Simulated assay, not measured.
Amino acid sequence: MERDGFTDDLDDLDPDDPEVQAFAAHRDRMRRPHSEATVEGMLRGVDDFAQSINRADGHRRVVAVGVVVLILFGVLFTVWNAVAFMFTTFAG
């Protein structure tokens, strides 16, 4: 029987203990199928990355935010080049 991430083998543990809650969340993440070939699987990976950034602190958080900023910069650069190419192609 499963309730809120706790299965029968976790019944003897205190569900209010933060370490037990973290362990149960870790087990739930490990049991989830990770099909990266679907949109849902890719979004699940982004969600896991965002949650790990929220849990990080110090230099790890700075590095993770830097990675996100670089990804966004790359996307904006690519979109800008595509729009400029389409404009120059159709305008003259």
Rank of each mutant, 00 (worst) to 15 (best):
V20C: 01
V62G: 02
G58K: 07
R60H: 12
V75N: 04
A37V: 02
V83D: 05
R32S: 03
V62R: 13
A25V: 02
A82L: 13
F6D: 02
R27W: 03
V20T: 11
A56N: 04
T89P: 00
A56C: 05
R44M: 07
P18R: 04
M1N: 07
A25G: 01
D16K: 03
G58N: 08
H59S: 14
H26V: 00
G41P: 03
L13S: 02
M1Y: 07
M30R: 11
L43D: 04
A64C: 07
P15Q: 00
R61T: 11
I53G: 01
D47H: 06
D47N: 05
G45H: 04
G58P: 01
N81C: 10
T7V: 08
L13F: 12
G45S: 04
T88G: 09
T89Y: 11
D4I: 02
G74F: 04
R32L: 08
G5R: 06
H34T: 06
F77T: 15
M30L: 12
V63F: 09
Q51W: 05
D4L: 10
L13T: 06
V65A: 12
R55Q: 12
N81P: 00
V62N: 06
E36Q: 06
M86A: 15
V39K: 01
F77L: 15
T38I: 03
A37P: 00
G5F: 07
D12K: 10
A24P: 01
M30V: 03
F85T: 15
V67Y: 10
V62A: 12
M86F: 14
V46G: 01
V79F: 11
D16R: 07
Q51A: 13
F73Q: 13
A64F: 07
N54H: 09
E40M: 00
D11Y: 05
G74D: 12
D57N: 11
W80V: 14
H34K: 08
D47W: 03
D16F: 08
A37G: 06
D17M: 05
